[in-house]
Simulated scan of single mutants.
Amino acid sequence: MSTNSKVIDIKDYEKLLCASWDLQNSLSALEFLLEECDYELAYTRVQVRKFKAFEDKAIISFFKAYLDSPGNVVNKCAGVKLTVTEKQLCKRVRVLRNKIVAHTDEDFTHFRVDSIEVGDETYFPIQNFEEKLFFGFREVLGFQDLIKKIMRYVCKFLFEEIQRNPTIRNHYKKPNE
């Protein structure tokens, strides 16, 4: 895992701690999804939206922590090494994150609108969205495994860092206001 013997600066240390928290949030969201969603069952639209909220949180939190660029603090400090398959999953999660955060729903939503006449040539739109999750059951398990692997690198690095850098053993950071 980590072979970095250089003491990191306090800003990178704080970023790495925050990345660890984001990874934990991502993993928790996937755990909540798996606790409540049986991929073999059919659900109402409202239930699917709840599951989507868990999935979206997992995707967004993961990419807050792990931007797959060499300069990212997780890569720079913890030295995460991924397989080709894991790198492909990261790319897929990045695309999904961009869709969730930066694109309008029409870019990736499948829907149909019909109308019914409610009187005197007045029509009411009936919207029908095909709502589904991005990941299937096995993909969620793979995503969990990826997060856990990255967390192991981060935790190992943080453990090593606190051994060699006494200035960070007791640290308190206030939020920027």
Rank of each mutant, 00 (worst) to 15 (best):
M1I: 13
S5G: 06
S5H: 12
V7G: 00
K11Y: 15
E14F: 13
K15A: 05
C18K: 13
W21K: 09
W21G: 00
D22F: 06
D22M: 08
N25S: 14
S28T: 12
E31D: 13
L33W: 07
L34Q: 14
E35P: 01
C37N: 09
Y39K: 04
Y39N: 06
L41S: 09
Y43T: 05
R45Q: 15
V46H: 08
V46T: 12
Q47F: 14
Q47V: 06
V48T: 11
F51Y: 07
F51S: 00
F51D: 02
K52T: 05
F54Y: 13
E55P: 04
D56C: 13
D56Q: 09
K57F: 06
A58H: 03
I59E: 02
I59T: 05
I59R: 00
I60W: 05
F63Q: 10
A65P: 01
Y66G: 03
L67Q: 12
S69L: 06
P70C: 02
G71W: 05
N72P: 06
V74P: 04
N75G: 10
K76R: 15
G79S: 14
K81L: 13
L82W: 01
L82Y: 01
E86A: 03
E86R: 03
L89I: 04
L89G: 00
L89Q: 03
C90D: 02
K91G: 02
R92S: 07
V93Y: 00
R94P: 01
V95T: 04
K99V: 00
I100R: 02
V101I: 07
H103Q: 07
D105Y: 08
D107E: 11
H110A: 14
R112D: 12
E117G: 07
E117R: 02
G119P: 06
D120C: 06
E121D: 13
E121V: 05
Y123V: 06
Y123A: 04
P125I: 08
P125R: 03
F129T: 04
L133C: 08
F134H: 15
F135R: 03
G136K: 12
G136T: 10
F137N: 14
R138F: 12
R138M: 11
R138P: 00
R138L: 15
E139I: 08
V140I: 15
G142Y: 04
G142W: 02
F143M: 07
Q144W: 10
Q144D: 02
Q144P: 03
I150Y: 07
I150A: 06
Y153P: 11
C155R: 07
C155N: 06
F157C: 04
F157D: 04
L158M: 06
F159M: 04
E160D: 15
I162W: 05
Q163G: 02
Q163A: 07
R164H: 07
I168H: 08
R169P: 01
R169D: 09
